[in-house]
Amino acid sequence: MREVIFSREYLQRRSFIELSARDRAESLFDSGTGRELAGPFDRIESPWLAMQGVTPQADDGCIVMRGTIAGQRAVVIAFNGAFQGGGIGEVSGAKLTTALDLACRDSENGQPTSAVLLLETGGVRLQEANLGLAAVAEIISSIIALRRYAPVISVIAGPVGCFGGMSLTAGVSSYIVMTPEGRLGLNGPEVIEEESGVEEFDASDRALTWSIYGGQQRYNQGLVDILVDDDIDQVIKTVQELITKGVPPRNRSEQVDVYRSHIAALDPSTKWNPADVSWSAASLARPIGRNQEVASNEEEHNQ
């Protein structure tokens, strides 16, 4: 392991996760082309937070930038996971929806404009509850409209991950890119423990959490398109390649028959080892969740 850890390649990496949301967005554009829209100096803040004694932020934790990536028109929308857990409020939600709609309008008029979503979000911001939920519905709709013309790429890089309603947003994207540090799921471990009890999910078990939601697992399962290291150059290169590749022949969330039959083949009466629930070509040959003994042994081993 030591050779791997201290390799030149590793030492030369620059972390993508550690960049601010604004710098992450800017890093993706062809040099000097990224231009922020409705930025912090526009001062369009959440109208709902101050009413509740919560300090708003001048960009509402969401950065929209326009420019070119690999020479193609693109818009990047980045969430700041440090502000309200990256939660979607009225303003941040409207920023994302509008950016997608404008990209769609240009695409329809013969100027394809891709969208890259840098998702660091726990989902709906509960202080703006119903307007956050409504915003997520609108975001999903706008992604589905745009992805017909240009790729919509969701990047889930940091440990805040992508949860709640925003996991549907990732789900309807043309492509999902993750790092091993990223997490993706509808309900986070704490929510499941709260709603269904500690027997259902022990949220303090970090190994279990990453074995289910982690980028490596989601990639192994075939639920994510590309796994990258937390490295700026790798993320840039991957986004450029996907934009160049264009719209996929079929989006993952359109492949209903495939995934419905996967679910039908699962046996929910047994305890599952997450690593066994995989639909990549290599693992499809194996039965899933049928051998409880093996599954629980492996689980102990993981801990």
Binding site: G171, L186, V191, S196, Q221, N251, S253, Q255, I263
Partner: peptide
């Protein structure tokens, strides 16, 4: 809200219905 649901990617199931 279940562990099996998350393992099996309920976010994609939800996305598929919203998509449809």
């Amino acid at each position: 809200y279940g562990r099996r649901e998350e393992i099996a990617g309920i976010h994609l199931a939800a996305a598929a219905a919203a998509d449809a």
